[in-house]
Nucleic acid binder design. Structure first.
Length: 808
RNA sequence: GCCCGAGUGGUGGAAUUGGUAUACACGACGGACUUAAAAUCCGUUGACUUAACGGUCAUGGGGGUUCAAAUCCCCCCUCGGGCACCA
């Protein structure tokens, strides 16, 4: 009997697949296209992490399974090689990214990805640093610019002092840089933005109709953050008008002061001469604070009075205008009405500065005392003139807003938390932003025929913190002529955010080699949107949101006829090691290569998938891969014909084996379809246990086993399939069908319960009516003693499952 | 604080619809094989209790609905994730 030797088998099938083009997709001829996408990696570390492989294998199983179901599956791979992760790694290791990246790509592909047994079509590899690719990344930028979806403005932006660049709001996690965890500061700079907020409403609304993991959708909903409310116009006493946004216009009568954000443009205008110095000091201090300091919860409220009063439009009351940093310029209008009785923050501020607190909503509970704490619950309006008695949130909001609306002092409005995407980066390793500044013509996008704007190879590519990219130090790069007037001009020297590269890569895969446009319209029509996207949820409000936005933008610009890039997105879980997060500092990183070398890719794949629920994550234990190898040894021995023999080709005769065979086909198919890989493997184990225990060896069973195993352990499946006499890949075969009748055991075990407790069991043929079951129950020995001296008040029959007698 | 997800043996984890809780593994223990070990194979393995048959308890905690609850409802605790001075 041949022994299972994974390294031999896996090398053999790798070669065979490559030779026969097994994993190559006929993009034009495909009859049932299925685009199976996984998140392309950054080639910026020592190697692929076990977490990458966990993600890829789970996705590959879907690709292979769909192929067995008869789909033409396209499963491409590429490298997200521009950006700070690669550049920082190059800086750390002292190599130039232009040299490091191609070598890493080669190494990742040849020594890692190809050894895991992924069904990847390498004829369509994408590398975002290749000029053939970033030419089109730049085209995206120009196209967005021409359609007013990209613009440049001066604003207080997030600055990472360690990476020496600005960041998008999405790349600041708890006030820290997503890449290096440094505390982010604010810096006033002119930067390029994409108008992500233009599609805030549709990006949010569409989520309800999307087939995505719920937690991914929740993250996006929270991030886009819609609030309904009203914009209300106030007047500065003896000065101009200004607006505030509020979700509680019902509490307008309770506004006892107003607050402007320190950055509000009207602050200078309304500050009275005696307060100028205080205001200037306060605003300077506010600016020096980092987001973390400024937004830390529980921080004591600070603020200063401007000297001016505002007039409340509902009652003409004059109330003081303050400046305080708890009001943010970036949300709403940057100014608020403060209702201390019904808002916790305003309440805290009012207490500290001795401002009046007026109750305008009464919940009817006499114990509530708004002078002690804010009441934010529902109730009826009080102290609100003609509006008294209305239910605050359900009636008051509308009544008061409509009244003001009729006087042109308010309007219903909706606010989003989402900010426009800041895409400039003062770094080297990215696609140069394709804009030219001309003294005469202003901002001029680089004409399409001049793309790509090549990234020059700079020996010194270190970011210098000057607020300019290292490209600004290269005169040959930035000095140019205006494409419109031919006069002297200079290029934008910032590069674009790496997330722009990854926002469109999946359109490129089918169209690699296409030179007229970023993507071939015919192939795009055939293959997109992506059928299935599997990836990590850490990209919920980054890549996944940006790529949704870009899809809508390209749709609006007329380049795509759909608005969502992925038909289905599935977020896999996270894996940990012995219950703890894997990290370099914990020194508990799992190196996948060693396991693959020792036990084979199939055992490694199987264990990764068996470890836990794919969608929840799992806990990597050292012995696991070895145990899985032992299982595959047993499976191999059980499936293969004994040396020199041929198995009887007729299907198994014994009903027990037929039951296991059919019910396993059914269960494994259902489990794969719902990403329940651990239970699919458990079902296969049960089948193998049956075969081993009963010494069953059968050609049809072995064939089926090879097919069931194929998505999970493709090399081994091929080997078994071939040894059963097939000369074509198992992936040319079709997923086995099951006989529904055979999935039911001919005899079922009935449970007898007395008052819901199990008191006896017996086996019976399936499908018997209650009349035939009842006497068996009543005459059951084990049950008799529980019925002694009792009367049966109720009998419950669950067909083929149980009988419950309720006795008294 | 708000919004998602989760909490089950010594461990990783099962349990489409409320219907035998603990599938499948790992580990541990016992046995076979071996000079011995490894590997492999066979068996036992939720806790408590009983000589045994059996019984009692057990799915984070507390209540409830039901003939029957890991599963449904209410309250609470813990962990993971998202949002958060967002008006």
């Amino acid at each position: 009997m041949a022994k299972y030797n994974p390294s031999e088998i896996e090398a053999k099938w790798r070669e065979r697949w490559e030779r026969d083009g097994t994993d190559k997709t006929d993009l034009y001829g495909a009859k049932k296209p299925f685009y199976n996408l996984m998140m392309f990696p950054y080639p910026s570390a020592e190697g692929l992490h076990v977490g990458n492989l966990f993600a890829f294998v789970g996705s590959d199983i879907q690709g292979r399974y769909h192929r067995l179901l008869g789909y033409d599956v396209f499963e491409p791979m590429g490298f997200d090689a521009f950006g700070m992760h690669s550049e920082n790694f190059a800086l750390k290791t002292g190599r130039h990214p232009a040299e490091m990246v191609p070598k890493n790509i080669e190494r990742f592909r040849e020594t890692q990805l190809k050894k895991v047994g992924l069904m990847l079509d390498w004829h369509h590899q994408v590398d975002t640093t290749s000029p053939d690719y970033y030419r089109w990344t730049q085209w995206m930028f120009v196209t967005l610019y021409k359609n007013d979806l990209a613009y440049r403005k001066r604003a207080a932006v997030n600055w990472c002092p360690s990476c020496n660049t600005v960041l998008a709001a999405e790349q600041v996690i708890d006030g820290q840089c997503e890449r290096c965890q440094s505390v982010v500061t604010k810096k006033e700079m002119a930067q390029w933005f994409f108008r992500t907020t233009a599609f805030a409403a549709e990006l949010l609304d569409e989520l309800d109709r999307m087939d995505w993991s719920e937690r991914t959708k929740t993250a996006q909903r929270n991030w886009i953050g819609r609030s309904h409310g009203a914009e209300v116009r106030f007047k500065v006493d003896g000065g101009p008008d200004f607006s505030v946004f509020t979700t509680r216009p019902d509490t307008l009568f309770g506004a006892t002061y107003m607050v402007f954000s320190p950055e509000h443009p009207m602050v200078d205008e309304i500050t009275t001469p005696d307060r100028v110095k205080d205001l200037a000091d306060y605003r300077q201090r506010a600016q020096a604070l980092t987001e973390v300091e400024r937004q830390s919860e529980g921080r004591e409220k600070t603020g200063v009075f401007t000297g001016s009063m505002a007039i409340n439009p509902v009652n003409g009351e004059k109330i003081p205008i303050w400046v305080a940093d708890y009001v943010l310029m970036g949300y709403g209008t940057g100014a608020i009405m403060a209702v201390p009785a019904h808002d916790e923050r305003d309440h805290e501020f009012a207490l500290k500065f001795g401002l009046p607190i007026r109750e305008v909503v009464s919940g009817g509970d006499p114990d509530v005392d708004v002078s002690r704490e804010a009441y934010v619950g529902d109730g009826n309006l009080v102290n609100s003139g003609e509006f008294n008695g209305l239910a605050a949130k359900t009636e008051g909001i509308f009544a008061i807003t409509r009244m003001l609306e009729s006087r042109n002092l308010a309007n219903f409005t909706t606010n989003y938390r989402l900010r426009d995407w800041c895409v400039s980066r003062q770094r080297y390793w990215g696609p140069p932003i394709p804009i030219i500044y001309c003294d005469k013509c202003g901002e001029v996008p680089v004409p399409e025929k001049d793309l790509p704007v090549l990234l020059p190879k700079l020996a010194d590519y270190r970011p210098d913190g000057s607020g300019l990219s290292p490209l600004a130090r290269d005169e040959a790069f930035h000095k140019t002529v205006c494409p419109t007037c031919g006069g002297q001009a200079h290029r934008e020297t910032d590069v674009s955010d790496n997330f722009l590269c990854s926002a469109w890569y999946f359109y490129r895969y089918p169209s690699t080699g296409f030179t007229d446009r970023p993507f071939d319209p015919d192939l795009t029509a055939k293959w997109l949107p992506v059928d299935l996207y599997v990836g990590g949820n850490e990209h919920a409000v980054l890549h996944l949101l940006y790529s949704r936005w870009l899809c809508r933008a390209l749709n609006k610009c007329g380049y795509l006829n759909f608005t969502e890039p992925y038909k289905k997105f599935v977020a896999h879980g996270m894996i940990v090691k012995n219950g703890a997060k894997m990290s370099k500092s914990r020194n508990n990183i799992v190196n996948p290569d060693e396991y693959i070398k020792e036990f084979g890719a199939d055992s490694f794949r199987m264990y990764l998938m068996f470890m836990g629920a794919y969608l929840e994550g799992g806990d990597f234990r050292d012995g696991g891969v070895k145990a899985m190898k032992a299982f595959l040894d047993r499976l191999f021995a059980a499936a293969l014909p004994p040396e020199g023999e041929v198995l009887d080709p007729s299907p198994p005769g014994d009903p027990e084996t037929l039951f296991w065979l059919n019910s396993t086909i059914k269960a494994v198919g259902a489990d794969l379809a719902r990403f329940s890989y651990n239970t699919a493997i458990a079902r296969i184990m049960e089948l193998v246990n049956h075969l081993t225990k009963n010494k069953v060896r059968n050609h049809v069973v072995s064939e089926t086993l090879a097919q069931l195993l194929a998505p999970l352990a493709p090399h081994l499946a091929e080997e078994i399939w071939e040894s059963l006499g097939h000369n074509q890949s198992v992936f040319k075969s079709r997923w086995p069908s099951h006989d529904e009748a055979a999935c039911q055991k001919p005899e079922v075990e009935y449970v007898i319960q007395i008052n819901g407790k199990v008191r006896g069991k017996f086996s019976m043929a399936v499908g018997l009516p209650p009349e035939e079951i009842e006497p068996l129950v009543l005459n059951n020995e084990a049950v008799a003693k529980w019925l002694e001296g009792k009367t049966i008040v109720k009998k419950i029959f669950v067909p083929d499952k149980l009988v419950n007698l309720v006795v008294k």
